[in-house]
Simulated scan of single mutants.
Amino acid sequence: MFSHPAHILAQGFGSGLSPTVPGTMGTLFAWLSFNIFSDRWPAFFTPWNWLLIIAIGFVAGIWACHITGKNLGAADHGSMVWDEIIAFWLVLVLVTPAGAQAQTAAFLIFRFFDMVKPPPIRYFDQRFKGGFGVMFDDIVAAFFSLLCIALWGSW
């Protein structure tokens, strides 16, 4: 992980190095860090600043995941979880304020879409490659998660 700065970011500061379910570990890291940062420094970690951090993180993730995938010999290596982190931060910032129960539901819904990759998520996962492809399919999973949460909330 420390052989290149891109690996640190792409592998979610080590959360992607879990021998089992690295994507889930990366999403849990996103959940924990979002809540710690938002609770500890609420004046800085406002929804608008989170959106800026997510946008910058998405662009940085394209670079980091491209480099890391190339160095690991797999375009979307399982240890790369920055895509889950950025996408789940997006889900959390758009459902905030949300209590623990709603955040748990958001976590489960996002993990479903990220793991199962139903159409059209699978289409984007297969169509776009490199760092952009790694990052983009999780943003689509975040969109479908948010859509489900919005539909659920409207009932």
Rank of each mutant, 00 (worst) to 15 (best):
D125C: 09
G16W: 15
R111D: 03
H77T: 02
G61R: 07
D114V: 05
W89S: 00
I54R: 03
N49K: 06
W41V: 04
A100V: 14
G78A: 11
F136R: 15
I67E: 02
S18C: 12
I56G: 00
W41F: 07
A55K: 00
V91P: 03
F13A: 11
S154L: 11
G133K: 12
R122H: 15
A74T: 04
P42V: 07
M135E: 12
F13T: 12
W89Q: 00
I36S: 07
C65R: 03
S79T: 14
A75W: 07
T46A: 02
H7W: 06
S154W: 14
W89F: 07
A60Q: 08
W50H: 08
W152N: 00
D114L: 05
D125L: 05
A60K: 11
K129H: 14
F143V: 06
V81P: 06
S79L: 01
P120I: 13
I109V: 15
S3F: 06
F34I: 14
G16E: 14
L52I: 15
K70V: 00
G14D: 08
V81A: 07
W152T: 01
W89L: 00
G14M: 05
V93R: 09
N35V: 11
W48T: 10
G14K: 07
G23N: 08
I67Q: 02
P119I: 12
W41T: 01
F128M: 11
A106D: 13
I139H: 08
I62E: 02
S18Y: 15
I8L: 14
G99T: 14
G23L: 04
W152R: 00
C65S: 12
